[in-house]
């Protein structure tokens, strides 16, 4: 009974993680494309750091876009990393989940900090 309940909650979790991974992949597909296009534009237009910051400073659209990008990446990456650890290092269970939540939080903190720094520069 207990084993069955464990399997059920494991299944519910795994299936939801997969949904989250797919959904964030969808967001990332667009976000990465826009991100790369912006870089290429900035480089080809010969913008220097000051000019770039001039355009991003106080730009709410910029902040919203990169916040979404960071949130999607912070959800997406640890889920994939968790699968890799399970498969290649045979790492399972609670310690793995806690470590992956930590990875997610670190990515989120670093990413949001960077996005906000450019916005508020």
């Amino acid at each position: 009974m207990n084993a069955a309940r464990n399997a059920a909650s494991n299944a519910a979790w795994t299936a939801r993680l997969l949904v989250a991974q797919r959904a964030t992949a969808f967001v990332l597909a667009f976000a990465v494309a826009i991100h790369l296009a912006t870089i290429i534009y900035a480089v080809r237009a010969g913008l220097n750091a000051g000019e770039i910051l001039g355009r991003t400073r106080g730009n709410a659209l910029f902040l919203a876009f990169y916040s979404l990008f960071v949130v999607a990446a912070s959800i997406h990456a640890p889920i994939g990393l968790r699968n890799i650890f399970r498969e290649w290092a045979n790492w399972r269970g609670r310690s793995l989940n806690i470590a992956m939540i930590a990875v997610a939080l670190i990515l989120l903190a670093l990413g949001l900090r960077a996005a906000f720094a450019v916005y508020a520069a």
Binding site: A8, A11, T14, R86, E87, R92
Partner: peptide
């Protein structure tokens, strides 16, 4: 339902 739960675990179809 229990079948989908059985195959959706970490070592199931998503692997």
């Amino acid at each position: 339902t229990s079948r989908l739960e059985a195959v959706a675990t970490d070592s199931g179809c998503h692997s």
